[in-house]
Design a protein around this nucleic acid. Structure first.
Lengths: 146, 146
DNA sequence: TAAGAATGTTAGCTATGGCTAAAATTATCA
DNA sequence: TGATAATTTTAGCCATAGCTAACATTCTTA
């Protein structure tokens, strides 16, 4: 029998550890970390278009979960665990971005990527990666898309 | 400049009228309505794996928004507006389901559909529909996927 | 038709994840 | 070095969307 749930229902059902927001923060910390090893509350707030108190709160959660090191007024640094996740999240982001791009999304490319990425599990991600590769090398598709 | 937001940020930014949950409820009312014209709080609760008080609360919101007709202890009925949306949501669901199926998702097909559908806007949906059609008629893909 | 079962509602709790205003800390620079 | 500016935190608010427990209504059936 088909088993439907609300979106929230799926999250609870799967004991999903990371919420979409947590993912957004970790991915962004990881992104910023690439170019500088100083990640601050303010940087993150600006990058995510969020007010600093929201960031403070989230950093506490991430710190409790063992995703970041953080001490009051200090620098934010991903733990090994956090770093692995960040790496995965950024790759996921890029995979979806490339996929959406090749199927012709232009205007809302980033927004659609940001929304979709949280919904896609590892298996689906791999399928999408494979599909993107296929499309990139498919002459019929080349004709179809132009 | 790239403008990132948290997922919640995008929702607020776009003044998105329908939350994911609201969409889930409307889609399910629409679904149930196809086979019977008696949609009750309990049916909906069971179908969505949610407790009846949650449904009562949501039905009130949907009623206030003009998506359903409802009177205490009565039947739930979509308004014309609700019906149009339900129709769109069900089509969106099916489109994504077919897409995920053709790219080889099996185990989490329904769950991934349910998660993805809320993230996809009309333009992306059309692209995905087009892509699915293409894949269905693409001999190279037939070879690739087997 | 009256009792019990089924269904639905209300009240009030939870967590997430935003926000503002105000307080605290840290950094800068004259 | 001490005043001011910038950054960060705390406190407390909001809405969404679940939940349980208790109450109300409606339905069924003996």
């Amino acid at each position: 029998m088909d088993e439907y749930y609300t979106l929230r229902g799926y999250k609870i059902k799967n004991e999903e550890i990371l919420s979409s927001s947590m993912e957004d923060y970790i991915e962004m910390i990881y992104r910023i970390s690439i170019n500088s090893d100083e990640v601050r509350v303010n940087d993150l707030s600006e990058a995510l278009n969020v007010q600093p108190p929201s960031t403070t709160k989230m950093i506490k959660r991430l710190s409790n979960g063992g995703y970041v090191y953080y001490e009051k007024y200090g620098l934010i640094k991903l733990t090994d665990k956090g770093n692995d996740i960040g790496d995965y999240l950024l790759k996921r982001h890029k995979t979806i971005y490339e996929f959406l791009k090749i199927i012709g999304i232009e205007n809302d490319l980033l927004e659609q990527t940001e929304k979709l990425e949280h919904a896609i599990n590892e298996n689906t991600l791999n399928r999408i990666k494979g599909l993107t590769d296929f499309l990139n090398n498919c002459s019929e598709y080349g004709k179809y898309i132009t």
